[in-house]
């Protein structure tokens, strides 16, 4: 079975895959970029941001969670799907408070980079301006919740890798928000440490090391020198601290 060649078509091109791969994984492995935000190669796919949406045999689905199946017809770069992905990224900008020019993460931010990749130039919709207080209680870490896109990567990393359960989500619908594992609700009262995996997975600028914000100057950061697709295809998933893919 293993040496039998299995393929599906992606916008008309044959893509080979191995059993167990999702459509997104197979596409990346074959050199085709699929925009994504909540996907991280080290974690089980989550399927929440929907930025990786494709059509499989005419049916809309998240490519990061859909198993690749031989003979499937997958559409990725049609005008409809490009519009849809762009809309979803605009939704995420609309939902939070993103002021990129003053954001420490600018240039290392996957949301921003995917936005550029998809031609997003504004939030387009009326911003929701949610009220999300910053948590600066921790001596070494700043929690800038205004930028959270609710991808749960920190939740997953803290639970599955760090075994600490520092982060979780509460609320639902548009009031869904990140909470930390302390009765006070303050990050300082959790056992988060700067070595934790949860410190390095946030695709945007929420979980930030204090006093490091501008160590790498703007202009030299990951997505200043590479596009989101280059980083994704390199198998790495920026941002890295030194700005290299």
């Amino acid at each position: 079975m293993s040496d039998e060649r299995k393929t599906f078509t992606l916008d008309g091109q044959d893509v080979e895959f191995t059993e167990g791969q999702t459509i997104l994984q197979a596409a990346l492995a074959s050199g085709t970029y699929v925009p994504s935000l909540c996907y991280h190669p080290e974690f089980r796919p989550h399927g929440s941001c929907k930025v990786c949406t494709v059509k499989v045999n005419g049916r809309t689905t998240a490519s990061c969670t859909t198993p690749a199946t031989a003979g499937d017809t997958v559409e990725l770069a049609t005008d409809d799907l490009k519009d849809l992905r762009k809309n979803l990224v605009q939704f995420l900008f609309t939902e939070g408070n993103h002021f990129c020019p003053s954001c420490e993460q600018s240039g290392n931010c996957q949301l921003q980079a995917v936005g550029y990749e998809l031609g997003v130039v504004s939030g387009h919709y009326n911003p929701l301006f949610p009220s999300r207080p910053v948590d600066a209680s921790h001596p070494d870490v700043l929690l800038e919740l205004n930028r959270c896109i609710l991808c749960e990567l920190c939740v997953r990393a803290s639970a599955l890798v760090d075994r600490k359960h520092v982060f979780s989500l509460s609320g639902r619908g548009i009031t869904k928000h990140l909470v930390v594992n302390a009765e006070s609700g303050r990050l300082a009262d959790t056992n988060l440490s700067v070595e934790d995996k949860a410190m390095s997975v946030c695709p945007v600028g929420v979980i930030l090391r204090k006093r490091r914000g501008f160590r790498v100057p703007i202009g030299e950061r990951t997505f200043d020198t590479h596009t989101a697709s280059e980083i994704a295809l390199a198998g790495a998933r920026g941002p890295t601290e030194d700005g290299a893919p």
Partner: peptide, 21 residues
């Protein structure tokens, strides 16, 4: 729909609120 969205995925979480507004 805005009240009952579980909030897991972006289109429903944000889209239902934009629709309501």
């Amino acid at each position: 729909f805005a009240h009952e969205s579980c909030g897991f995925c972006t289109p429903c979480r944000v889209g239902t609120t934009l629709g309501r507004q």
